[in-house]
């Protein structure tokens, strides 16, 4: 049941993100990418299986038994992904601001649609 809830949540995050990604304004795209980043991070994280109350921290200073702990590998991958996500958001935001200064619009194409 927990899996279904989380899967639904991931789906909604990703769906909202994709919708925003297809919008014409740059700020919408930034928010959309952040939402997709959440969804993808949760998705990768959930690949290790959901377990509560079993953080991957060894109880004793010996070799651990893999069955006792949540899967540490997806967690390590997602941890770096979160930090890199911040860096890309920052870079994207600054590129957006620079493009806005140069073109005078916040449209993703750099010019307003003629219509």
């Amino acid at each position: 049941m927990m899996e279904a809830i989380l899967a639904l949540g991931i789906g909604v995050l990703a769906g909202s993100g994709v919708w925003l990604l297809l919008r014409p304004r740059t700020f919408q795209v930034i928010v959309g990418l952040s939402l997709i980043a959440y969804a993808v991070n949760l998705f990768i994280f959930s690949m290790g299986g959901l377990r509560s109350g079993a953080p991957p921290i060894l109880h004793a200073r010996t070799a651990g038994d893999a069955a006792q702990y949540a899967d540490p590998l997806p967690q390590a991958l997602v941890l770096t992904a979160i930090v890199i996500g911040f860096a890309t958001t920052a870079l994207f935001l600054v590129v957006v601001l620079a493009s806005r200064g140069l073109t005078g619009t916040d449209h993703v194409d750099g010019r307003e649609r003629e219509s």
């Binding site: 899996e3 279904a4 899967a7 789906g11 995050l13 769906g15 994709v18 969804a39």
Partner: peptide
């Protein structure tokens, strides 16, 4: 497109 993408990822994740 957005709903399809969300539903697809949801199913895949489940």
């Amino acid at each position: 497109i957005a709903i399809a993408a969300g539903a697809g990822l949801s199913a895949l994740a489940y």
